[in-house]
């Protein structure tokens, strides 16, 4: 005996469910592709990593140089 009983409703809605499923898969692929495209293009990726972010570090050095002068 199968674990899930096949209801008539499942057959009737199969076209709709397959359509939604394919759309979701396409959406996932698109978001994955976008992620790869944005990472590939590079630029500085900054996040908190228990140290100064590169942008902040440069600014800090500039301030220090200014004070020394």
């Amino acid at each position: 005996m199968p674990l899930a009983r096949e209801h008539e409703l499942h057959r009737r809605r199969s076209g709709r469910n397959i359509g939604v499923g394919l759309l979701l898969v396409a959406f996932i692929l698109l978001v994955f592709g976008l992620t790869i495209a944005k990472v590939e293009r590079g630029g500085t990726i900054e996040a908190f990593d228990h140290t100064y972010r590169p942008g902040l570090a440069v600014r800090h050095e500039e301030l220090q140089q200014g004070e020394e002068r």
Binding site: H7, E8, L9, R12, R13, G15, R16, I18
Partner: peptide
């Protein structure tokens, strides 16, 4: 939900297909 939908069908309610949403 399944019971409610099953009763809709019994009452003759139309089932929207994927094409209707498109």
């Amino acid at each position: 939900d399944i019971r409610a939908n099953a009763s809709d069908v019994a009452a003759g309610a139309a089932e929207p297909g994927f094409g209707d949403f498109v």
